[in-house]
Design a protein around this nucleic acid. Structure first.
Length: 465
RNA sequence: GGCGACGUAGCCAAGUGGUAAGGCAGAGGUCUGCAAAACCUCUAUGCCCCGGUUCGAAUCCGGGCGUCGCCUCCA
C-alpha cells in the first residue's frame, strides 16, 4: 500500500486511485519567461520518481503538466528583450524541456499550453457565470469567493484573515477583495483573444482548472506543485473547479518543499535563482538529480554547490561498484547468509521506502547499505555472486531513482593510453617505481586516474575525490 | 499583524510511542612499492530549551527561543 501526504487533509493517507489501475496526475508547470532554475528541477525530478514508482507498482500513469505560455510577465519580459512574446515563451519552453531531459526526467504525457486552450477556458468561465459564481465587471470577469467554509481549507486560512494581509490587491471592479480575475481585459497592442467580455487574456488560475478537466476529467488522483502555489493558486483553482463541477478536483494535493539558497527562497522575482544550465556546467546531471532526491521532497532544501559535490563523492562509490558489476550475469549461486539474503530482498525494501510517501532519502540509504553488503560478500569470497546481485539491484534502483552514470567511468583504453600503461606495468615489474609514478602523474594531468587493482590497472575518467 | 512549517553528530540527512538509518568529513586498522579503490572498527547516553502525559518520547501535549515560508508574481 502506498501512502501519500495530502495537503488538504494534512495527513498521510493510503493511496486509492479513482479508477485503478489508472492514475491521473496534474502538475502545475512553469511560466516560461526566464531560464529554469534549481527550484524548477525539484518537482520535475520528484514527480519523475513518483511516476516511475507508480508504474512499477503496476499503475498506468497519465501525467499532465501545463505551460502557462501567456501571462503579464511574459508580455513584460518580451518588451524588455524586444522579442515576440510567443517566440520568447517558445524559447524558454524548449530550454526547460531540454534541461529536464538532461536530468533524466520522463516528459509528461501531455504538456498543454494556455494559448492552445483558449476556447475551453472561455467556455469554463461562461459556465461559472451561468452558475452565478462569477460576475462581469467592465471587460473583466471575477470569481466570487463565497464564505461557505470550503474556501481556505487547502491553505488553512479564513477569508477574514485575508483582509489582515496589508498588501491585498485592491481592484476597482472587484466586489470583494478576495475575488480574483478569471478574464482580464488587455489593450489591442498586447497579445490577447476576443471573448464575450472583450479582448483580453485568461486570469492566472483558470487555465489549470480548465486544462486539468480537459485532459483528466472533473476528478483526478494527484495534483502537484510547489509549496508556494498552495495559496492563492491552488486554493483558487480548487474553488473554480468545485464551483464548476461541485466536487473535489483532486484526491490528493502533493506539494514539494522549496529550495533556498543561503536560506533565502529562490524566486524569479528576486533574481537569485541559480540557472540550471549554469549549474549543469559544473556538476553532473545525475549528481544533481540524485542530490535533489537525497532530501525528502516535503522538506526545505538549501542548495549549495559544495553540498551537491559532496553528495557526488558518495555517489561515486556506487558508480565504481556499477563499473565492476555491470557485465555480470544473473546470480547463479545460493548462499544462505544474512548479507546474501539482504541483497535478495533489496528491491522490495527499496519499493517499501517509496511506498511511504516517496521517501527517496531513505531509499538512498538502502542503496548504500546494499553496496556494503556487496563488498562484504566479495570479501567473503563470493565475488561473482555479490557482483551479480549488485548488477541486478543497481539496475532496479536506477529504473526508479535514475542514479547510474550516463557513461562508464572506466575508459576503454586508447592505443596511446594502453601503451603508456603497458610501459608503466613493465616499470612496476622491475620495481622502477619512479618511472611508474611519472607515468601515472602524466596521465593524472590529462584528467585520468589510474587505479592498481588486483586484476590489473584501470583508468577512470574522473580523478578520484 | 494573521496562518503554516521546521530545529537530529563538524556538515548534509532519515526516523510520528519502544530505546538514534544513510552520506560527507575525521581517527585507527587490513591490503598496496606508494597511492587509489575496497573492507573492518570507532565517532550523538542523546535528537533547540523548560515543563507535562506514559512502563517507555527525537517522536504526543503545553510554554519558550530560533530559522524559514505563505498572506504579492513564484516550482
Amino acid at each position: 500500500m502506498i501512502y501519500i501526504y495530502d495537503t488538504l487533509t494534512r495527513q498521510k493517507r493510503p493511496f486509492i486511485p479513482l479508477k485503478p489501475p489508472e492514475v491521473s496526475i496534474y502538475v502545475c508547470g512553469v511560466t516560461p519567461y526566464a531560464e529554469a532554475h534549481v527550484g524548477h528541477a525539484r518537482p520535475a525530478v520528484m514527480w519523475d520518481v513518483i511516476k516511475r514508482h507508480l508504474t512499477r507498482r503496476g499503475y498506468f500513469v497519465r501525467h499532465v503538466q501545463n505551460f502557462t505560455d501567456i501571462d503579464d510577465k511574459i508580455v513584460r519580459q518580451a518588451l524588455a528583450e524586444h522579442e515576440d512574446p510567443k517566440a520568447l515563451a517558445e524559447r524558454y519552453m524548449a530550454q526547460y524541456t531540454d534541461v529536464m531531459q538532461r536530468l533524466r526526467v520522463i516528459p509528461p504525457d501531455y504538456a498543454p499550453r494556455v494559448t492552445e486552450n483558449i476556447p475551453q477556458i472561455i467556455a469554463f468561465i461562461t459556465e461559472l457565470l451561468n452558475k452565478q459564481m462569477a460576475y462581469v465587471s467592465g471587460h473583466d470577469v471575477y470569481f466570487t469567493v463565497t464564505d461557505d467554509g470550503t474556501y481556505g481549507q487547502l491553505s488553512g486560512r479564513k477569508i477574514e484573515d485575508l483582509y489582515a494581509g496589508v498588501r491585498m490587491e485592491v481592484h476597482e471592479g472587484k466586489r470583494a477583495p478576495q475575488d480574483f480575475a478569471l478574464w482580464k481585459s488587455a489593450d489591442d497592442t498586447e497579445p490577447g483573444w476576443v471573448s464575450p467580455w472583450g479582448y483580453g487574456r485568461p486570469g492566472w488560475h483558470i487555465e489549470c482548472s480548465t486544462m486539468a478537466a480537459q485532459y483528466l476529467g472533473r476528478q483526478f488522483d494527484l495534483h502537484g506543485g510547489g509549496l508556494d502555489l498552495v495559496f492563492p493558486h491552488h486554493e483558487n483553482e480548487r474553488a473554480q473547479s468545485m464551483g464548476y463541477f461541485g466536487c473535489e478536483p483532486a484526491s490528493y494535493w502533493v506539494h514539494n518543499g522549496l529550495i533556498t539558497q543561503d536560506n533565502v527562497k529562490m524566486s524569479k522575482s528576486l533574481g537569485n535563482g541559480l540557472g540550471l544550465r549554469e549549474i549543469l556546467e559544473q556538476i553532473d546531471p545525475v549528481v544533481l538529480r540524485t542530490y535533489l532526491l537525497s532530501v525528502h521532497y516535503r522538506s526545505p532544501l538549501d542548495f549549495q554547490l559544495a553540498s551537491a559535490e559532496e553528495w557526488g563523492r558518495g555517489l561515486q562509490r556506487i558508480w565504481r561498484l556499477w563499473d565492476e558489476a555491470k557485465n555480470q550475469p544473473a546470480p547463479s549461486e545460493w548462499v544462505d547468509e544474512p548479507w546474501a539474503r539482504r541483497l535478495e530482498s533489496f528491491e522490495q525494501r527499496l519499493a517499501e521506502c517509496l511506498d511511504d510517501d516517496f521517501n527517496t532519502a531513505k531509499a538512498f540509504a538502502e542503496v548504500f547499505e546494499m553496496a556494503h553488503d556487496v563488498r562484504y560478500g566479495m570479501a567473503q569470497g563470493h565475488g561473482a555472486l555479490a557482483l551479480a546481485w549488485a548488477r541486478r539491484n543497481l539496475q532496479a534502483a536506477d529504473q526508479i531513482l535514475g542514479l547510474l552514470p550516463e557513461t562508464s567511468q572506466v575508459l576503454s583504453l586508447s592505443t596511446m593510453a594502453e601503451r603508456l600503461l603497458s610501459i608503466r606495468e613493465q616499470a612496476r615489474a622491475r620495481r622502477d617505481f619512479q618511472e611508474a609514478d611519472a607515468i601515472r602523474n602524466l596521465l593524472a594531468k590529462a584528467g585520468y586516474t589510474i587505479e592498481d587493482t588486483p586484476e590489473g590497472p584501470r583508468i577512470l575518467s574522473q580523478p578520484s575525490a
